[in-house]
């Protein structure tokens, strides 16, 4: 058994009837980092996670954790902790009883159930039935379940869903701590902004395909600023753009110049120096979320620069 907690998804595909939910997807998730697994609803995130966990059989390709398929791992809960849906509890069972279901299979003493409840701040609700839990409490209980076996690899599907702002902040710190201990932490989300303060790496998928995979700083560097300049002097504006070698996007109206990779101050100064009259000069920073939407939108439709709102 390898001690490495690297997740490797290799040319993974899954079809449900005519629907290609996951299409030739490949990426890698490194230990010691928090990786955001991002994509809009229906992008194939959950299906990918389920294939990684041996719940759904891939149509082709492989998904392994530390070099092994999930089904080959002995006592898998000791290696991989996964929380797929916050609703996977019997409502009539208490939180502590729920955790004690799995302690024999994890191979830890029953006292471990109390410990993990303490870790996620649910000790007070240990003997309450899960049916009465809020979504946030269920999320914490799901997280507690994943921690029973002190696993090297954590896979969490939308763990911030239903958490209040304080809970989200707590979760951030908790995930960072787990990664700092050398664990592999994969967190799925349909919005980048939710995880952008938590993750080191991002894997972005859309329509079952890989849209982008890199570290978060590398992703941030791809965010292109945009400036919109409007002038009644069509010829002067065109000459200015040409002279300055700015990238001009198609805007339709010749009086409008949509410019990439240049800031408003530069454009304003150049226009002033050239004596080109401007009626409007606005800069737009699509930010990471805009870039995310752009990347997601670019899958299946390459070449169209989806604009951030």
């Amino acid at each position: 058994m390898t001690t490495d907690g690297t997740i490797l998804v290799d040319h993974l595909s899954k079809s449900f009837g005519p629907v290609r939910a996951v299409d030739d997807l490949s990426f890698q998730v490194a230990p010691g980092r928090v990786t955001g697994f991002l994509g809009p609803n229906g992008a194939g995130k959950t299906t990918t996670l389920r294939m990684l966990l041996g719940l759904v059989r891939p149509t082709s390709g492989t998904a392994t954790i530390g070099g092994q398929a999930y089904g080959e791992i002995r006592r898998p809960l000791r290696t991989v902790g996964a929380a797929l849906e916050a609703a996977s509890f019997h409502p009539g069972r208490t939180a502590l009883d729920h955790l004690r279901l799995y302690t024999p299979q994890v191979g830890v003493p029953d006292a471990r159930a109390g410990e993990v409840l303490e870790l996620v701040g649910l000790s007070a609700a240990a003997d309450r039935r899960v049916g009465g839990f809020s979504l946030g409490m269920r999320q914490r209980l799901a997280l507690a379940t994943t921690l029973l076996g002190d696993p090297r690899v954590l896979l969490l599907d939308e763990p911030a869903n239903g958490l209040d702002p304080e809970g989200i902040r707590w979760l951030r710190g908790f995930l960072r701590m787990l990664a700092a201990e050398g664990r592999t932490v994969l967190v799925s989300s349909h919005v980048l902004s939710e995880v952008e303060q938590t993750v080191d790496d991002v894997v972005i998928i859309a329509r079952g395909r890989l849209a982008h995979a890199s570290s978060l700083p590398d992703l941030a560097r791809m965010a292109r600023v945009q400036v919109r300049a409007v002038s009644p002097d069509v010829a002067g504006l065109a000459a200015l753009v040409e002279r300055s070698a700015w990238t001009r996007a198609e805007a339709g109206d010749p009086r409008v110049a949509e410019l990439w990779d240049v800031d408003a101050a530069t454009v304003g100064a150049a226009a002033f120096a050239a004596g080109v009259e401007l009626h409007e000069l606005t800069s737009r920073d699509p930010g990471l979320e805009g870039l995310f939407l752009q990347l997601v939108g670019s899958v299946d439709a390459p070449g169209t620069d989806g604009m951030a709102a």
């Binding site: 089904g71 797929l84 509890f89 299979q105």
Partner: peptide
Amino acid sequence: RHQTITPTLLAEPR
């Protein structure tokens, strides 16, 4: 009914 089959199979994939 309660989708606990998911954690069940995660704990015992065989």
